[in-house]
Amino acid sequence: MDPLHYRAFTTPSGGGNPAGVVLDASGMTDARMQEIAADLGYSETAFLDPGDGGHFRIRYFSPLAEVDFCGHATVASAVALADRDGAEGHYVFHANVGPIPVEVHSTERGYAATLRSVVPSVAPLDALAELLRVLGWERGDLAPDLPVGVAFAGLSHPVLWAASRARLADLAYDFAAMKDLMIAQGWGTVSLLHRASPDLIHARNAFAVGGVVEDPATGAAAAALGGFLRAHGLLPADGRFTVMQGEDMGQPCRIEVDASGDGGVRVSGTAAPIPVA
């Protein structure tokens, strides 16, 4: 089946993070999936193997390698299924990290999807000094009142808070050194953040390990961030916040996060097909 082209976590004015979606990859080899993902060049392409009752095996490939979990490709896949079926739906995607329930609902801008991540966790960021060196940041570039660490909700992401929006906007890092560091540490992306308010966070996510400098929208990192804020008592009272990402790339993306309660974190966003010739 030819891959579909979607953009996920769109804003009312457009934007969104492109993803490839193959709705029936049953019988497809790993090599073929990797080849398709590399040809598309999106940060991730999702490959679905249909099961029964709305259950699907799902795998994600970046241009360079398989990725255990990807939020924006999950949202894109769920909306692609709803577009195919012409109806809202409930799905369970069985990823390498475990089952990811997803609900698709209609909005005034088309379909939106809400996924629930695996249970999040946090850990210390032992490689902080090395990460700052690779980024070209100083310790004074970090927000003094916010904690650093490693957040997990399917993938591990170091969390750094920029002291200013201008510091976040100025991103130029050593790509080869970042890729090596991410491989050594087992990181999915590097979450670079600025907290404009308790319920609005600006994000950039370095993704050298996936073969691209920056991911325009990272649902997996947003889920992990929800767990990180919950663990540190930094959530708004209702547990909900918005992540704006991709703005500095000219691809604005909006990710809604609900980390209230315990267990998995809910991540929501709209998605739409990308017209292709």
Rank of each mutant, 00 (worst) to 15 (best):
N205Y: 10
P12G: 14
A25W: 08
V257C: 04
T10R: 13
L146F: 06
K179Q: 15
A259D: 02
L229N: 06
G269Q: 06
L193S: 11
V134L: 02
V119K: 03
A272D: 14
A220W: 03
G261D: 10
H232W: 02
E138M: 00
L48R: 05
I274G: 09
P252K: 13
I255K: 12
R195I: 09
S106A: 15
V257H: 06
D170S: 14
I201A: 10
A220Y: 05
V267T: 07
G27C: 11
D258I: 07
F47Y: 07
D262Q: 09
M244R: 15
A80H: 08
N96G: 02
A163T: 11
R240A: 15
A8V: 03
S117R: 03
C70F: 08
S197D: 14
V102Q: 10
A87T: 11
V102I: 13
G27S: 12
A220V: 09
D39W: 10
E103L: 10
D248P: 00
A38E: 14
A166C: 01
A38T: 12
M28G: 10
F69I: 12
S156D: 11
Y91L: 07
S191E: 11
V102A: 13
A206L: 11
F69D: 07
G16V: 06
V21N: 01
S197F: 10
L171G: 10
M182C: 13
A8R: 03
G16A: 08
L146Q: 07
D248G: 05
A151Q: 01
G269F: 03
L225K: 00
S62F: 04
S156L: 04
R204K: 13
V276N: 03
R57W: 04
G269A: 11
P236F: 02
P252C: 04
V267I: 12
T114Y: 05
P275A: 10
L234S: 04
V118L: 07
L40Y: 08
F228T: 06
G51A: 13
G136Y: 08
A123W: 02
N17S: 12
T11D: 12
W137V: 00
A151V: 05
G53L: 07
A177R: 14
L229H: 00
A82D: 09
R266Y: 03
M249P: 07
S164E: 15
G136D: 09
A38I: 01
G15W: 07
G186M: 07
S26A: 15
L171S: 09
H5R: 08
L64K: 14
G16L: 05
C70K: 02
R167L: 09
L200K: 12
S156W: 02
H55P: 00
V75A: 11
G233K: 02
A113P: 10
E66Y: 01
V213P: 09
F69H: 09
Y6S: 05
G140W: 00
L234E: 00
M182P: 01
A221C: 09
G226S: 05
D145E: 14
I183S: 14
G53Q: 13
S121H: 07
